[in-house]
Design a binder for these strands. Structure first.
Lengths: 123, 123
DNA sequence: CCTTAAATAGTAATGATTACTATTACCGTT
DNA sequence: AACGGTAATAGTAATCATTACTATTTAAGG
């Protein structure tokens, strides 16, 4: 993998963001530094970086792809008022899923939990 | 809401299916009964029927919309070998999410859990 | 400073879903 | 049984996120 100014900028944007940006959000932020950067380049590099485990790509049900600097396993909560995506770092969830795996005699290797409601700010 | 042959056929197909069909799957099955039924009609009626609570529309992360005759809250497991979508009727999950709601002082109103792995048949 | 392949910009294609519009058909009223 | 209003439909176009394609640019090793 060669160096590229584009990839550096894209990585820095994700590492500096805490709002779980979409590819389009990264694209718009990147354009402020490289005015003619291509959306395809943003997608390719976001996918590349997440394949390498440097950033994390995730999806919330009913939503589009998002990217996160936090690579460790965690879930996401979406506030229906402000639209914010909030990290839920919940280890007990993974324990719970393991139990479920035994009960249902299906071998659960991976899970995605999307939570919806109202965040503490908006209540 | 008026009667329509199309809606009757579409509803019957979902009620007779246990494979969590997509709109396109319902469309292809419906065409065997009404050869010129429109895909738009299928989408509109599937959405209409799920708004009425007669069927259930759901999504698995990374997958497209699916429809289910089972309307009560439950989660879904996807086998990566055979591709089957299997219902997980797990009450304890909902209790767990309620607890999580308290811990995180976010008001969790709804959740979607997608489980991935290998089913009992394919192991 | 050359060369070569990786990376890019710009554009086209894809696929699921929704929107649009002229036509059809359900159904209550005569 | 015919009529008229309007909901529902068929067929097609539009949308939007994402991927694919291709000619051009650029990193970096010799």
């Amino acid at each position: 993998m060669r160096n590229s100014k584009q990839r550096d900028v894209i990585l820095k944007i994700v590492l500096d963001s805490s709002d779980h940006p979409t590819a389009d959000m990264v694209y718009n932020r990147a354009r402020k530094e490289i005015d003619n950067i291509s959306l395809g380049t943003v997608y390719r590099n976001l996918n590349l970086l997440s394949e390498q485990g440097i950033i994390k790509k995730f999806k919330i049900v009913g939503d589009i792809e998002r990217f996160d600097k936090t690579v460790i396993t965690h879930s996401h909560f979406v506030c229906k008022e402000c639209g914010k995506v909030i990290d839920i770092m919940e280890d007990s969830l993974s324990d719970f899923i393991k139990e479920l795996s035994n009960k249902t005699n299906a071998n659960i290797e991976r899970y995605e939990v999307s939570l919806f409601g109202t965040c503490s700010h908006c209540q």
